[in-house]
Every structure is written in C-alpha cells, then in structure tokens.
Amino acid sequence: MKYFARRLGFYIFTLWAAVTINFFIPRLIPGNPVDALIAQRKGQIDDKAVESLNVLFGLDKHQSLLSQYFHYLGQLAHGDLGISFNNFPEPVTTVLGSALPWTLGLIGVTTILSFLIGTALGVVAGWRRGTWLDGLLPATSFLSSIPYFWLGLISVAWFTGPDSFLPSSGGYDPGLIPGPQLGFIGNALRHSLLPAATIIVSSVGGWLLAMRNMMVTVTAEDYITVAHAKGLSGGRVMTRYAARNALLPSVSGFGMALGLVVGGTFLVEYVFSYPGVGLQLLNAISSHDYPLIQGVFLVVTVAVLVANLLADLAYMALDPRTRKEG
C-alpha cells in the first residue's frame, strides 16, 4: 500500500504542476484577449463572465500574483474552466463534456487493443528468436515511424469514397441524434473503425519491440531453465513464467507512454474530424480560443493521470514485490 500511496502523492503533485503551468501560460500572451473578445462581441457579455475570464487570464492587475493564483485555484475547484471564445457563450466545461466521451472511447479501446496485440506478438517474437519473426522488426519500425495522421490520410484516400462502407469523417452521420439507441451505436462504431485501425496499426510496433526485448532478456534467466528442466511444456513456460515477468516493464511504461498516445490520437481526430477533445483543441489553436485550449490541457492531463493510476494498480497486482511490507 505504501507503493500506491506514493504514486498517488506523485500524481497529485503532477496535477498541481499542470494547473500551475496552465496558470502561467496565458500570461505570456501579448495583449489582452478579453478586451478583444468584448470588442468582438460588441460588449454583450455579462459581468460574471468577464470576471471569470479575468481570473483565468490574470488580467486583474490590482491583485498580486499570489492572490491571482489562489483565485484561479478556487475557480477551478468550482469546475469553472471559463467561457469558450469560439462557442460563445457556452462554457468550456459543456464543450468538453460532449467531446470527452468520444476521445475516451477512442483512446481507451485502441490503446488496450494495441497493447494486447503488440505484447502478444512481442512474446512470440521474443520466444521464437532466429525465425522469420525477426524479419518483422524492421517492418514494424517502419510502420511505427509513420505518423498516425498520415496513415489516417492514406486510409481515407484508399478506403473511403462516396459510397463506401467506411465513412471518411465525423463520429456519426449528420442528422442522427446521439443516444443509446442501437442504430446510433452501430453508426458510431462504423465511424470509429478507420480512426481506431489507424491508431492501432501505428502503435502496435512500439509495444511489440519493447516486449520482444524484455522477453529476450528474461528467457536467458536461470528460473526459465529450471522451468524447462521441471518438464513444463514450452507454451506454459512462455506464458506463465517468461511473459509474466517480461510484462512488468511494459505495464509500468504503459502509463508513461499514454502521453504520447494522446498526442497521436488528437491528430487522428483532426484528420477524421472525429468529434473528440483533440479536434476541439486543434480547432481552437487557429482561432485563438484560449480558455478552451487551457481547458483541454487540464482535462487531458487529469485523464492521463487517472489512467496512470489504474496502470499502477495493475502493476501492483502483477508484481508481488510491491506488496511486501517491511
């Protein structure tokens, strides 16, 4: 449990760091974005909105930096991430709220799938060294060097068209109302196939390579030889003994790799106009929608931290050394 408590403490610290980074970034923006917004909207913004934006951007020059900071933290604690410039007057939380499930679904499913597939292939590749599987390595490194989004572009060009089964963009057909109906879910799944496939094909290589390298190191250890000598079947030794130990670094690296996966997924969303958080962020870039940008950053960081925590729980379950007291 000490291990878990330590990790939790670290994540809380990281969250604080992300929040603080978020606090400082808008202060680098030249000029006053809030005034620009007011001018743009011709003065039709209520005072409370202006106030919250001022706190967000630290434009209330009468306060010291420290009190601005605490004000900002207080605002966050109330769940107020500001008002989105683009989607005015919708608050950022609403915008993100509708986009988040799409991203979570996409990243969640693809990451788990590519982890499982990559690791399984890596186990086999590491176990059966010297066979044709070794030739697979340069191929997978080629595949993993392809940027996610480019693969997305290619697959749109090849696999989609006006009448094809796979749609070229969007999360669901326009005109459908989102909801838990079967028709909608089926449609949403169809729309998610290409983006998901793109991500999986690109990221499998990384897991495969990592697992293969660990398997090679683990299989040279003495306890594997003992297992063979005990008369256990090759398959059993491969899974129960070798793979289980080789898996540990991959699991602990899982959470860390998530940061990179998030980046790639955002780009895929952009290419496919998939209505997730990434699309929101990248659209917000060109229109300088600062509150939205900051909101996305915070939300994504929280999600990654939670995923890391779950990965740590999985690691605790796998590695008995973390459970030993004293």
Binding site: Y223, V226, Y241, N245, P320, R321, K324
Partner: peptide, 11 residues
C-alpha cells in the same frame, strides 16, 4: 522466509 517466498512467487 520472505526471500524464500519471493523465489516461489517469481518462479
């Protein structure tokens, strides 16, 4: 004893 237990789990 702990060290022995470790050995068992890992193998």
């Amino acid at each position: 004893t702990d060290a022995e237990k470790e050995q068992e789990v890992v193998s």
